[in-house]
C-alpha cells in the first residue's frame, strides 16, 4: 500500500530523467553485445600483443614472461630472414594487387555491357571468390604438381619450361605460384566492387559524351576513370593491406619454402608463433608490420588529399 501511495506522490520530473536514460541507452543496448565481443577478442589481444613485443614470451618455457625492452627489435634489425620476408611481402602484395586489379577492371568492364546469359556468366566468373582460400591454395599446388597437374606439361610444351617440373620447388620463381593462385582467387573481389561502381555512373553522361563526339577510348578516359577513381583508390588501399597480412595461400602451398624464398612477413609471424611458439618475437614482428602498413595507408591518404587539393 505504501509503495503505491509513494508512487502517486512522486514528483513529475523523475520520469523524464528515467525516460531520458532509457532513450539514451537504447542504441547502446542494441550494439553492446557486438561491441563487448570486439573489445574482448580484438582490442584486448591487440593491447596484449603490443606488450608481448617487449617481453620474453615463449610458450614452452615456464620461466619466460619477463620484460626485455627493445631486445626483440634489435634481433629483428639483424634478422636476415625478416629482411627477406619484407622484400617478399612487397613483391607478393604488389604483384597480386596489380594483376587482380587489372584483370578485375577488365572483367567489370566486360560485364557492365548487357548481353544474353549475363547473370549466368557473372555467377560463373565470380565463383573462385566462394572457394575457401586454403582449398584454392591446395588446388593450385596440385595444378603445379607435374604428377597430377597439367600446368607443368603445358608450360613445357609452350617452351617456357625446359622440363615438366614443379614451379613451387624452383627457388627462383616459386613466389609466382601463390601469386597466381591469389590472382585467380582475388579477381572477383575487384570485379564486383568495380562493377557496382560502374553501374552507378549515370548512363546519360556517356550519351552526352558520344553526342559531343568522344570515341570509346576517350569516353573511358574522361568519364569512366574519373568516376571510378575513388572506388579504385579505396579498394586498392584496403586490398594491399589485406593481402600483405594474408598468409593462408603461402602456408598451404609452400610453407614459406623452398629455402624461405616465399616467406612473407605474415607467414613468418605465423611460423614464429606456431612452430617455434616464440610469441614475444612474433608479436614484435607483427608490431613492425602493423606500423609499416599504417605508414603506407597514411601515405596513400595524404597523397590522395594533396592530389584532390591540386585538382
Amino acid at each position: 500500500m505504501t509503495t503505491v501511495a509513494q508512487h502517486a506522490r512522486l514528483p513529475s520530473d523523475h520520469r523524464p530523467f528515467l525516460r531520458r536514460l532509457a532513450t539514451a541507452s537504447e542504441p547502446w543496448l542494441y550494439s553492446a553485445p557486438a561491441l563487448i565481443l570486439i573489445v574482448a577478442v580484438m582490442l584486448v589481444p591487440l593491447a596484449l600483443g603490443l606488450s608481448y613485443a617487449f617481453r620474453d614470451v615463449r610458450l614452452l618455457n615456464p620461466f619466460s614472461g619477463g620484460f626485455v625492452g627493445l631486445q626483440h627489435f634489435e634481433t629483428l634489425a639483424s634478422d636476415k630472414n625478416f629482411a627477406r620476408a619484407l622484400k617478399n611481402t612487397l613483391f607478393w602484395a604488389g604483384a597480386s594487387v596489380f594483376f587482380q586489379f587489372t584483370f578485375g577492371l577488365i572483367l567489370a568492364l566486360l560485364l557492365d555491357r548487357p548481353f544474353r546469359g549475363r547473370a549466368l556468366a557473372q555467377a560463373l566468373v565470380f565463383l573462385p571468390w566462394a572457394v575457401p582460400s586454403f582449398l584454392s591454395g591446395l588446388n593450385w599446388a596440385w595444378l603445379f604438381n607435374p604428377v597430377v597437374g597439367p600446368l607443368p606439361h603445358w608450360l613445357t610444351a609452350l617452351g617456357i619450361f625446359d622440363a615438366p617440373t614443379n614451379l613451387l620447388s624452383d627457388p627462383q620463381n616459386a613466389m609466382w605460384g601463390p601469386i597466381i593462385a591469389n590472382i585467380w582467387w582475388g579477381i572477383p573481389f575487384f570485379a564486383i566492387t568495380l562493377l557496382a561502381a560502374l553501374q552507378a555512373i549515370p548512363r546519360d553522361l556517356y550519351e552526352a559524351a558520344a553526342i559531343d563526339g568522344a570515341n570509346a577510348f576517350q569516353r573511358f578516359w574522361s568519364i569512366t576513370l574519373p568516376f571510378l577513381a575513388p572506388t579504385i583508390a579505396i579498394t586498392v588501399l584496403l586490398r594491399t593491406v589485406w593481402i600483405s597480412n594474408f598468409a593462408d595461400l603461402i602456408i598451404v602451398m609452400t610453407k614459406g619454402g623452398p629455402a624461405d624464398r616465399t616467406q612473407i612477413v605474415a607467414s613468418y609471424i605465423f611460423t614464429q608463433a606456431f612452430r617455434r611458439l616464440d610469441f614475444g618475437y612474433a608479436s614484435a614482428i607483427a608490431l613492425v608490420l602493423l606500423l609499416l602498413l599504417m605508414a603506407y595507408s597514411l601515405l596513400i591518404v595524404l597523397l590522395r588529399q594533396t592530389m584532390l587539393r591540386r585538382a
Binding site: 582490442l43 584496403l238 612474433a282 602493423l290
Partner: peptide, 20 residues
C-alpha cells in the same frame, strides 16, 4: 572502431588470443 578492426593484421592477434 569497426573500421579499424578491418585494417589491422589478424596475425598479430594469434599469440595473445592463444594466451588468453
Amino acid at each position: 572502431l569497426m573500421l579499424l578492426t578491418q585494417m589491422f593484421p589478424l596475425v598479430m592477434l594469434i599469440a595473445p588470443i592463444f594466451k588468453m
